[in-house]
Simulated scan of single mutants.
Amino acid sequence: MYKQKKQVRTYKQPSQLDSGMTLLMTVSRKTDIGYFLQSGKDEVFLHKNEAHGPLDVDEEVEVFLYHDHENRLAATMDLPYVAMGEYGWLEVVDLSSRMGVFLDNGINKHLLVFIDDLPKLRDEWPRPGDRLLVTLKKDKQGRLLAQPVTEQEVLQFSVQADAGMKNKNVEATVYKVIAAGAFLLTEDEHVMFIHRDEMTERMRLGQTVRCRVSFVREDGRLNGSMRERKEVQYGEDAEKLLRYLNNRDGAMPYTDKTDADVIQEKFQMSKFSFKRALGKLMKERRVEQVDGWTKVIKQE
Results as ranks from 00 to 15, higher is better:
Phe102Glu: 07
Asn223Trp: 13
Asn167Asp: 15
Arg127Lys: 13
Asn246Trp: 08
Thr10Tyr: 14
Gly142Ile: 01
Leu145Phe: 08
Gln4Ala: 14
Gly85Arg: 02
Leu133Val: 03
Val213Arg: 01
Thr10His: 10
Val296Tyr: 04
Thr173Cys: 15
Lys168Tyr: 08
Thr10Trp: 12
Leu90Thr: 01
Ser96Phe: 06
Met269Asn: 06
Leu37Gly: 00
Asn105Thr: 05
Val216His: 10
Glu228Met: 11
Gln289Pro: 05
Glu236Val: 03
Arg9Ala: 14
Val232Leu: 15
Leu144Cys: 04
Arg72Trp: 11
Tyr35Ser: 11
Gly129Val: 02
Leu24Asp: 07
Val159Asp: 02
Asp259Leu: 11
Val170Asn: 10
Asp18Ile: 00
Arg221Trp: 02
Val82Met: 13
Ala260Arg: 06
Pro148Asp: 08
Glu239Ser: 06
Lys266Ala: 07
Gly40Ile: 07
Leu118Asp: 01
Met282Phe: 03
Lys271Tyr: 08
Gly181Gln: 04
Leu132Thr: 07
Lys41Trp: 01
Lys138Asp: 08
Leu205Phe: 10
Arg285Asn: 15
Lys280Met: 12
Thr22Asp: 09
Asp94Lys: 10
Arg72Asp: 12
Arg9Cys: 08
Glu189Ala: 12
Leu90Trp: 09
Asp32Tyr: 12
Val8Lys: 15
Lys266Cys: 07
Met1Lys: 04
Val287Trp: 12
Asn71Ala: 10
Lys240His: 10
Lys168Val: 00
Leu145Tyr: 09
Thr135Lys: 12
Val82Ile: 15
Lys41Gly: 02
Arg217Trp: 02
Cys211Trp: 04
Gln152Ala: 13
Gln16Arg: 09
Met1Phe: 11
Gln160Asn: 06
Val262Pro: 02
Trp293Lys: 12
Arg98Pro: 04
Glu288Pro: 00
Met252Val: 09
Leu55Tyr: 11
Leu118Pro: 01
Met84Ser: 05
Trp293Ile: 00
Leu65Ala: 03
Leu144Val: 14
Asp58Asn: 14
Tyr244Lys: 06
Glu284Gly: 01
Lys168Gln: 15
Phe193Asn: 11
Gln152Ser: 05
Ala146Thr: 03
Thr76Ala: 14
Leu65Cys: 00
Met25Cys: 05
Leu55Thr: 04
Val213Gln: 02
Asp117Pro: 01
Gln7Ser: 15
Gln16Ala: 13
Asp68Leu: 10
Tyr2Asn: 07
Gln147Tyr: 12
Gly53Met: 05
Val159Ala: 01
Thr150Pro: 05
Asp58Cys: 09
